[in-house]
Amino acid sequence: MITARRSMPVALACVLGFVASLAAVGPTPPAAQARAIADSRLPTAERESSTADSRLPPADTKQLTADSRLPTADTKQLTADSRLPTADTVYLFSYFTGNGEDGLHFACSDDGAHWRRVGGGRSYLAPQVGTKLMRDPSIVHGPDGQFHMVWTTGWWDHGFGVAHSRDLRTWSAQANVPVLGDVEGVRNVWAPEIHYDPDAKHYLIVWATTIEGRFPETLQANGDAGNGRPLNHRLYATTTKDFVSYTPARLFYDGGFNAIDGVVVHDGQRAVLVVKDETKAPTPRKHLKVATASSMSGPFGAASAAFSPDWVEGPTVLRLGDRWRIFYDEYTRKRYGAMDTQDFRTFTPAPDVTFPEGMRHGTAFAVTRAVADGLER
């Protein structure tokens, strides 16, 4: 069992002002490229030494045929139901800027297409745990009425951060979850994504990690590196019901390629994993794929062909009526992009999507107008 390590409580002050105009897409700050080569500017974390851990079982890497990659879902047109936005629905997008030093930011949209900064672009929560970064903030609204957030606390930390809020303004004490602190050879814990599984009645947290010596078949000497050593990620996961104790980390997905940024949704028929192929050499892929399973806990089958452009990362999936919109960070082109789909088989570029300048990897989610308005007070 893994338990969280908590920090001092943090409260947010009220926000002043509001920027209502739509911002044109522009360049991101000259921060270190996420998930990229080692950079002396990036903070390092002391390696925690331990013995080999058998809690992370190897995955069955048998490749499936193309016909069995994506199980067929019922894609009939949806009638009006609770998935359709109402007059009270507003969309928020949590994100970070720069290297994540100043913490949590929000963008807001009435239609899931045109996004504006919230609170003039201020930070709503400063990082207090780990290496004291707050990258990749992932937020879910739980059945307990609270918003639960996890994030990357540092480039080479062995755990992730977690905090909770009822209004996204006032937050609980932050905790550090050393989810891989006692596993030998762990290099990092990147981009944790939190989901609520209503069937299992627990929170599922998925992240990417390189563990030295594992998956040598995809280790690339000329691939991405960190601190002078090659990176070769797979997705791992833990679950919790109370954010006090966490199940032992397990291998969540091995699709036979270097993978990061895994997001899970359920489309009513099956669970869908959106994941980035992080392969760099001999030909860079750096694009998004999908895999499916009968439940959110997996196991997930082989990944589809790429549906996004190359050189993207940080997907987040938003339900908009009868379709899903998948946002992603086009980090080398310094902009955000999006694809729409109804069945996770056919994808079309989302039209007329605009974002504030400098947004980086986060989560899009629906809230009530009262919650969004509260962030402006």
Rank of each mutant, 00 (worst) to 15 (best):
A372F: 00
A338D: 01
T240F: 01
M134N: 01
A271I: 02
S165C: 04
G358L: 06
L125R: 04
W171I: 10
D67T: 09
R187F: 09
S7Q: 02
K62V: 09
C14Y: 07
T348Y: 05
F300N: 05
R270Q: 15
R135P: 03
P71S: 10
T61K: 12
T316W: 07
F327T: 07
S49W: 00
A59Q: 13
P43V: 01
P27Q: 10
P71N: 08
V353I: 12
Q174V: 02
R83H: 12
S50N: 11
P356C: 12
G103R: 02
K62Q: 11
I205C: 09
S7E: 03
Y236Q: 12
S138E: 06
H361M: 09
E357G: 01
S308H: 01
A11R: 11
D242M: 06
D53Q: 07
V263I: 07
P356I: 06
V179R: 04
E330Q: 13
P29G: 14
G26T: 11
G121W: 08
V129L: 05
A271D: 02
N258Q: 12
V183T: 15
Q146L: 13
T3W: 00
Q77H: 11
S245Q: 14
T79D: 08
A293V: 03
E357K: 10
T97P: 02
T3R: 14
R369L: 06
E184F: 08
F147R: 03
V19E: 14
G112S: 11
W156N: 02
Q77R: 15
D277G: 10
R360F: 03
P85E: 06
T210I: 02
A221W: 00
H287C: 14
V274I: 12
D67L: 13
E313W: 02
G98W: 00
K334H: 14
S49Y: 00
H195Q: 06
S245F: 04
T210S: 11
Y331F: 13
V140C: 08
G181E: 05
G142D: 07
S245W: 07
T72H: 08
L273H: 04
A4Q: 07
N232M: 10
D39H: 07
T316C: 13
V244W: 00
T283V: 15
A23H: 12
A163G: 06
T65I: 12
G119N: 01
A303F: 03
I2E: 08
V206P: 01
A302Q: 14
W155A: 04
D167W: 04
R214M: 03
R214Y: 03
R270M: 07
G121L: 12
G130H: 02
L125K: 09
L204Y: 08
L235F: 11
P29Y: 05
H148M: 11
T3S: 14
R41C: 01
P27W: 00
W155Y: 13
H266S: 14
A249E: 01
T247L: 08
D277I: 01
L235C: 09
A80Y: 13
R122W: 11
R6P: 10
D224K: 14
P43G: 00
G26E: 15
N232L: 09
R360N: 10
Y236T: 10
M8Q: 12
A23M: 07
T247P: 02
